[in-house]
């Protein structure tokens, strides 16, 4: 059966990581390419790049980061969250394997539908906010063709939020926002999540994806071993 995925997530703004990582071995812990390749070397199953940009930011710079990373990254790269078809196209061309769409606002539904028609269900991820409506919203995203639900959790959200969404859809559910520790990831997996994204843990603590995976393995999670590459 398919392994549970551990997916480090990096926010990028103006060609730099929004927050530097703390683990050792990097000359520049704010260089997105260096950080993402380190995630790969540590056994990440996929990387998720989050464009964190205001209107004044250079969008072209983000695309050039994607192109540069793609040349050396030998694992999947998901990029989000696209706000227009053109933006998603530019990310796909630059080397994104999948693109996420903020699904909650009405315009997100239109964008998702249009991207699925061209690129296929498996290439499009719907980012859905947790909360009481998450189950219904996730089912709607699946109906419109999303190939995965990225469920954004609030601090403290756990099985009670993840499990109903996983039961409401047949597509994989990934979690973001409250799965920053091996224990929280395991709880999400046990509630039915296929993947857990972690972002702030790498900026807050001296920890690697390999550390997280080793702990997950010891807890009995069915993940790809960190030394598989």
């Amino acid at each position: 059966m398919v392994k549970k995925r551990v997916v480090p997530c990096l926010q990028v703004r103006s060609g730099r990581a929004v927050r530097e990582v703390k683990f050792e071995g990097l000359d520049d812990p704010g260089d997105p390419k260096a950080v993402l390749l380190a995630f790969q070397a540590h056994g990440a199953d996929e990387v998720y790049l989050d464009q964190f940009a205001g209107p004044e930011d250079d969008i072209g710079l983000f695309v050039s980061v994607l192109e540069s990373v793609r040349e050396e990254l030998a694992i999947p790269m998901t990029v989000g969250a696209a706000s227009t078809v053109d933006e998603a196209e530019s990310w796909f061309m630059a080397g994104a394997d999948r693109v996420s769409v903020q699904f909650d606002p009405p315009e997100g539904r239109d964008l998702l539908t249009r991207l699925v028609a061209v690129h296929g269900t498996e290439r499009v991820v719907a980012k859905v906010s947790g909360g009481s409506a998450a189950k219904v919203v996730a089912a709607e995203a699946e109906r419109l063709g999303a190939g995965e639900i990225l469920l954004v959790l609030a601090n403290g959200d756990g099985r009670d939020v993840v499990s109903p969404v996983c039961h409401a859809v047949r597509v994989p559910v990934a979690t973001l926002g409250a799965t920053e520790s091996p224990q929280a990831m395991l709880a999400a997996f046990e509630a039915g999540a296929a993947a857990a994204l972690a972002a702030t843990v790498f900026a807050d603590q001296v920890v690697t994806v390999a550390d997280i995976k080793r702990r997950l393995v010891s807890l009995g999670a069915d993940v790809r071993p960190p030394n598989d590459l």
Binding site: V2, D45, E122, G147, P172, A194, A195
Partner: peptide
């Protein structure tokens, strides 16, 4: 497929010439 197959899974086969190992799938 009844549901999308996305992620790393074992590639196996008795007669196959491909080595066994974990590979990344992404398809419906």
């Amino acid at each position: 497929l009844p549901s999308p197959h996305i992620g790393w899974n074992a590639v196996e086969g008795e007669d196959a010439t491909l080595p066994e190992g974990l590979a990344y799938f992404c398809h419906c």
